[in-house]
Amino acid sequence: MELAHEQRGDEISVRQITERAGVSRQVFYLHFHDRDEAITTAVADSLAEALPRDTGSKEEALALIHRFLGFTTGHVALYTNLYRSSASEQVATAARTLLHPACVILARSVLGDSSAADPAVRDRDTWREQALTTLLVGGVMEVSRRWVEARTGDHADIDPAIAHQMLDDCLRLLLGDAPPRDV
């Protein structure tokens, strides 16, 4: 995690990781297939540690999403160093996986939890839920990416609160109300 904050992901070597961790290459390869898996695991574990575990309610789902955004805004160098590295897609997949349950809850809050007796109606409702969940996950990822890119571009002094406001605006549009949040 420290190395990913310090340099580009593709420039990190297994040797650097093992030296920083104080372990041998053999120990490294007992736990990881390659450098990218080690980077992905470090980032995914840090992200999972930063996010609340319970997302049973709409409020808890919103809190998780805002915590994810808080993680992103607090780790700008990490995002910048991993962007377009060979590990970036794996890290993005890990982030989407962590966001998915919260976004399912939000989609169900809009569409309702379908338990229709008619299989055709149930299938249609399932597709609608999956589509809205995918839109929510992608939207959260995109708001996060957009804020980090603004921060690393011409707006280096942009306040992290702007990212949360952007997210709230998008969620309000999709969910139809002003979502409460716990950042």
Rank of each mutant, 00 (worst) to 15 (best):
L30H: 12
I12Q: 06
V148H: 07
R122M: 11
K58D: 00
I105N: 12
S144G: 02
F32N: 03
L98W: 04
A156F: 14
E60L: 05
T93E: 13
R124G: 12
G9I: 13
L82P: 02
H33T: 15
E6K: 10
Q130F: 01
R84V: 02
V137D: 07
G74Q: 08
D157P: 02
H5P: 05
H164I: 11
L30T: 06
V43C: 12
V140S: 13
D113G: 03
E149M: 09
S115G: 11
P52R: 09
E142T: 13
E142I: 11
Q26A: 15
D34H: 09
R20Y: 03
T18G: 02
R15S: 08
T93D: 14
A61T: 03
A48K: 00
L78N: 01
S86R: 07
V104W: 00
Y79D: 02
D54P: 00
V140R: 09
D168K: 04
H66Q: 14
M1I: 10
I162C: 13
A116M: 01
Q90T: 03
D154C: 06
P160S: 09
T126W: 07
N81R: 08
A50W: 11
R25S: 12
V76R: 10
P101A: 00
A117H: 14
H33L: 15
P119I: 10
R172H: 13
I39G: 06
A50E: 09
I17G: 10
L173M: 05
E37F: 13
D159Y: 02
L175I: 00
H164Q: 13
D169N: 14
D45F: 11
F28H: 03
V183F: 08
F32W: 12
I65Y: 04
A156Q: 11
A42S: 10
P119N: 09
A161R: 14
A161G: 12
R122K: 08
K58T: 00
G9R: 13
R67M: 01
L98P: 11
L173N: 04
S13K: 07
F32L: 03
A102V: 00
A4Q: 01
S57M: 03
D169L: 15
A94R: 04
Q130H: 03
V143H: 04
A77M: 11
R145K: 09
E19R: 08
D177L: 09
T80N: 08
M141F: 10
